[in-house]
Design a protein around this nucleic acid. Sequence first.
DNA 1: TCTGGGGTCCTAGGACCC
DNA 2: TCTGGGGTCCTAGGACCC
Length: 420
Amino acid sequence: MFALIDCNNFFVSCERLFLPALREKPVVVLSNNDGCVISRSNEAKAIGVPMGAPMFEIRDLLKREKVHSFSSNFQLYGDISNRVMQILQRFSPEVDVYSVDEAFLDLSGTPDGKFEEVGEDIRRTVLQWTGIPVSVGIAPSRTLAKLAAGISKKQGKTFLLIEEETLREVRRRTPVEDIWGIGRKLSASLRMAGIGTAEELANTNETWIRQKYNVMMQRKVLELRGIPCESGEHESSGKNAIMASRSFGTPLTKLEDVQEAVTSYTARASRKLREQQSVARVVSVYIQTNRHNPRERYYANYQMVELPSYTDDTAEIARFAREAMKKIFVPGLRYKKCGVTLMDFAPAGNFQQSLLDDAETVLKRQRQHQLMLVVDKMNRKLGGDTLKFGGEGIAQKWTAKSEHCSPRYTTRWKDIPLVN
DNA sequence: TCTGGGGTCCTAGGACCC
DNA sequence: TCTGGGGTCCTAGGACCC
């Protein structure tokens, strides 16, 4: 049996923790660059603020309805998320953190008949210890647990999707679009084939669906019947790719400015790489102009580079990343966004050295590695950007807009709230 | 004027091997 | 005239997720 724990309107809920006056008020959290809406309170949903709505389209609506909007504060959300996930560990030895606001729990140790009790215990404990309201869905497969959590969110209590009767009823009421893993394309295709509900999908012939689609769809069918097929392991061995990308606050036209951003994003990606104790052999950079502006030519390109050796050294990776960017940068365009991706990982401290490295190079690499560890340590202790690379620039005119960001209440000493 | 960021998994098809 | 069969590995790209 699986439980899916889902934090309700997570980013908004995080913001409300420290401003209780905003409870029952319409609140939204904006994406990076204050570009569009990525989290909405129930009140904001009721007013009709769509998910993903671009700011410039709904600015008037937000103002008229007195909606409180926040720039995204991922340090805060990340920290609150960790606290929630830690609490969940008490309820199961197998916690699969699926995203910042969701986790699957393996409840096979829980006796039948106790599921509802456990679910309510989870909801109560998380709310009391962190202030975050969560939904809990319990079912024999992950796909069904997702469906159950959706119902839990509406009902405000744990929802069990276990009994045959309930199962059939819920599946009948669930359009294929609402099934986890069935997106726009697949649902359109299923509807063409005359399959419109979860119940209909669950009742299709297994081999037929496998032939017409693929194993994923076959697994979906089984999962909907209550036979678990999706595997967990989302946090076990670190990521297979690490990406850092941002839209620029204003369009950039000069290579030097883009290079600053590339260096800065490389620093961020490399830090994550070291955190998960990996080294990378491939770095890829990309750049693009504004996709939505019909009056300007849209240009997007990327370049992948193999590094001379596995490494986690920001300086070395940045050198290659900047070189790669030079190759795809076309002068005369207004760039909107760029990004850096690290790929092809090996565990740090246990990887193939390059044949070409002589003793001196190996020593140099080790010293560089030590240096990076010190940089990371200082930045952890004294705050994000205490030590930066010169290449990241000082003025950084490309940094994203963030006009309504709340304090880092829980991760920066000077932002910790005072109680009078 | 203004539209996020960071991931995963799967498949098809090409290169290559014996 | 007639030109096999069975693999592996890699990559690009699509679809999906939150």
